[in-house]
């Protein structure tokens, strides 16, 4: 359940984004700027959240009434080992400690849909959280750490769980639309495991940023999944991308990587929380992505 502390949208005094160069943090900064909202990004080069001294450094940055958005984290491409897990947990520990010493008005934690047990046919905010690897364990543990500290600090916490994000500016190369764009432009073909029959929900980065702005404006607390509600197969995504780029792009198949699994989201909670929020259709989002990639 998401609970709004404001019945009408009100801009926070200032938004502090922890993480300055990531996919989500840059998109959020762009949207905050467009909305005329004051914000400040904190890069890892300025404050290394893995280090204990970051508590005091954040304490010096945080001001009364600030809304904090924590996007920082070492993603799986930086390491999937126990050391990475512990560094990620240290970050949450230090952010939580800084929060306890400040008078921030809101904390938004960017988690991941990896926290959910994928066996449910529809994932929703109260679905079972079940770690499948150290990365998902990290997010579950960070959610718990920040829930504990935000409760202690009496600061409303919004846990924001995006599903697979796509769009221009993605710094990762995970299997899905962004990798398909890269494959198409580099090799003139998109290669899918099996026949690409797995169904996934892909959310557009601009929608993620818009939804985050809504959560900040309403000072929302609780958990919300950022998903489009429109799940399609990887084959469908690949075909659409090939269609956008041109007839020279082939869609090819590799042997299946395992059992065909599906991952769909029940977006009722988002609809209830933000009834006027209208996600971008996959076709529109892919077209915009291509346009931005071609004209950065």
């Amino acid at each position: 359940m998401l609970y709004h502390h404001h019945t009408k949208p009100i801009s926070p005094k200032r938004v502090v984004i922890l993480g300055a160069s990531g996919f989500v943090s840059t998109a959020l900064g762009r949207h905050l700027k467009a909305a005329g909202m004051e914000y400040r990004s904190v890069a890892s080069s300025e404050v290394d959240l893995t280090q204990p001294e970051s508590v005091a450094q954040l304490g010096a940055i945080f001001c009364e009434g600030d809304a904090i958005v924590m996007t920082s984290g070492l993603t799986p491409d930086k390491g999937r080992d126990v050391g990475t897990l512990m560094k990620n947990l240290s970050m949450a520990q230090h952010v939580g400690a800084a929060l306890e010493q400040s008078l921030c008005s809101h904390l938004v934690y960017i988690s991941s849909d990896a926290v959910y047990d994928g066996r449910e046919s529809l994932i929703r905010e109260n679905s079972i959280r079940q770690p499948s690897d150290l990365y998902s364990l990290m997010h579950i543990a960070r959610e718990q750490i920040l829930s504990f500290t935000s409760a202690k600090a009496k600061t409303p916490l919004c846990i924001f769980c995006p599903c697979a994000i796509y769009g221009a500016g993605d710094t990762h190369n995970s299997y899905g639309p962004n990798r398909f764009f890269r494959m198409a432009s580099k090799d003139s073909k998109i290669t899918l495991f099996g026949e690409g029959r797995e169904t996934r929900d892909h959310v557009y980065i601009e929608d993620v940023a818009r939804l985050l702005v809504q959560c900040l404006m309403y000072r929302s607390a609780g958990t919300i999944n950022a998903a489009s509600g429109e799940a399609v197969t990887f084959h469908d995504v690949a075909t659409r991308i090939a269609g956008l780029i041109g007839p020279s792009i082939a869609v090819e198949f590799l042997p299946p990587g395992g059992a065909v699994t599906h991952r769909q989201f029940d977006v009722t909670e988002r609809v209830r929380a933000f009834p006027d929020f209208n996600p971008t259709s996959l076709d529109e989002g892919l077209l915009e992505t291509l346009t931005k990639v071609r004209n950065p």
């Binding site: 509600g229 209830r272 006027d276």
Partner: peptide
């Protein structure tokens, strides 16, 4: 219970 909410959002509210 939320069938109509989802439908209304998809075809009216959005």
């Amino acid at each position: 219970r939320d069938w109509a909410l989802r439908l209304l959002h998809r075809i009216v509210l959005s």
